[in-house]
Amino acid sequence: MGLHPLRLGSGCFCVGRLSASHSPVLMCPLLKATMGLLQFQAPTQNDTMPWVVPTTCDWVVKFQELANTQPEAYFLELPHLHRGEKGQQRWLEEIYGLVRLLENQTGRKLNRKTLLSSVQIFMHAWKVFGRLIELRRKRVLAGVWFMVAANSFLLDSIEIWTERVHQMLETVATHPPAPEGNGVFLAGSPIIFPNFKLLHLIETAGMDVYGDDLCTSERIWPGAVCYEEPSYRGIMRALAERYHKACICPTFADNERRINSILNTLQQHHIRGVVYHVLKGCHPFDIESFNLEPRLKSRGYHFLKIETDYVQEDSQNILTRLEAFGRI
């Protein structure tokens, strides 16, 4: 439709201060920062630009109320059961609703052809992204750089982004892999630039991230859409299912497959330790860590849960814990 999505999530600490006085103390720092950032919005120019919020967690649901932004947010109501027929049906209806909104905004019609070509563009991006993940697993690409590439997804036209990642891969692929070291798996709440505190600390502690399941990194999108039906409704259905059913965010009630995804990576790449990052106030990830920890430990993996936010003051404390973890 000639539109590009732009991600809003922010990892900026300073800006969070702008919203500190009129938001709950224990609010998720990511949303606090995003909310602060919206203070910079120039209302006159953006009146017609909608911003779309999938209701993934309670903070997001109440975000509009707290931030009081103009224009009002358009909520995509996310069914929290994604394995059943009802949830999938409802999500598809939400997606059709979104299409109507965008069509009204632009005055253009979404059609089968543009959907198909966009699916193809994303398939290509997914292929390139797969190679990026491979290089990281082979230790050619440092965890921090992987995060830089993944974080910038959807901040530019997807084709250009893919092209640039491809170019970068050509350069990096010639580099020798880093010596076998202490690889860890990073799970939990999202990490967003510029708040790479935890990544830098993990490196300082003599470890590197070989894999992760963060929704701003490896899990930034669940992969390309496979469809059987090339009709408009067929592709829409495949699209909706792909982004709903395949998502393993802890916000879902029936999310037992997340552990599989983590265990798989751990087994295939001989990673022994999991660092679990919880942003203070990020309840879904916090809750799920209690289920994940015993299951990982029972299989002989080491587990370290780190609860922090965007402040730098606790860095030394975290570093000490990470160093101790690295020695195991």
Binding site: Q45, M49, T56
Partner: peptide, 16 residues
Amino acid sequence: AEVGPSGETFMQFGTV
């Protein structure tokens, strides 16, 4: 609103 490198308008979405 930004005009992207491909000449198309960017639309903002919140995904958090």
